[in-house]
Amino acid sequence: MAPFSLMTSSVSWLAKSFSVFSCTNTLARCTSVLPTAYVNPVKCLTSQASGPPKRPLNGYLRYVLQQQPAMYRRIPEIKTVDIIRKIAQQWRMLSPEQKQPFQEASLRAREQFKVDFQRYQALLTPAQLQQQALEKRQRMAKRKAICKKRELTELGKPKRNRSPFNIYVSEHFQEARGTTTPAKMKSLVEDWRNRLSHQKKVYTQLAEDDKIRYKNEMTSWEDHMMEIGREDLIREQTLSNKKKVSAKTSEVKKETKKAKAKVVKNTTPTVK
Rank of each mutant, 00 (worst) to 15 (best):
H172K: 10
E135G: 03
V39E: 13
V202Q: 15
G229M: 07
L239C: 11
V271K: 07
A37R: 09
Y203F: 13
Q121S: 03
R160Q: 12
T46R: 07
L94G: 01
M93F: 12
L188E: 00
H198Q: 14
K142Y: 02
K257M: 14
F102E: 05
T270E: 07
D232C: 02
V81R: 11
Y63D: 12
C23H: 10
M71F: 05
E227Y: 02
E255K: 12
D191L: 12
Q199D: 11
I146V: 13
N241D: 14
K248T: 10
S240G: 10
Q89E: 15
K215W: 03
P52D: 10
E251V: 01
S197L: 09
E104F: 04
K144E: 14
F173K: 09
Q237K: 13
Y60R: 13
F113P: 05
F4K: 15
R193F: 03
K157S: 12
S170N: 06
Y38S: 06
P158D: 08
R235N: 15
Q66C: 08
A183I: 01
M218G: 07
T153G: 04
Y168V: 02
E208S: 08
I234R: 02
V39N: 11
S170K: 07
K200Q: 07
R137C: 04
M1H: 11
N216L: 12
Y38P: 00
L129W: 01
K16W: 04
I78K: 03
Y38R: 07
I84M: 06
W91S: 12
Q118A: 08
G59D: 08
I167L: 13
Y72E: 15
K253D: 13
V189I: 09
K114H: 10
Q174S: 11
I146C: 05
K253R: 14
I167K: 03
T80P: 01
T26N: 10
Y120L: 03
P69S: 08
P53E: 03
S12E: 15
T46Y: 01
F18K: 00
S106M: 01
S47V: 10
E255L: 11
A2I: 13
T180Q: 00
L94A: 00
Q103H: 14
T268G: 07
A2M: 12
T249Q: 13
L188C: 00
I212W: 03
L45D: 06
R162S: 06
Q130Y: 02
P126L: 01
S19K: 05
E104C: 05
I212P: 03
R137E: 14
K43P: 00
E222Y: 05
P69L: 10
D209K: 10
K157Q: 12
T181W: 05
Y214L: 02
Q128I: 05
E222W: 01
Q174N: 10
K99H: 04
T26K: 08
V202E: 15
Q205C: 00
K258V: 06
G51L: 05
F18V: 05
S220H: 06
K114Y: 06
W91P: 09
R85A: 13
V81E: 15
L124F: 00
V169T: 05
V115N: 03
K253I: 08
T219L: 08
L155P: 01
R110H: 08
A70W: 06
D232T: 02
S95Q: 03
R73T: 05
A176G: 01
Q67E: 15
P182M: 09
V11D: 08
E231K: 04
R137W: 03
F102W: 05
E151R: 03
R92M: 14
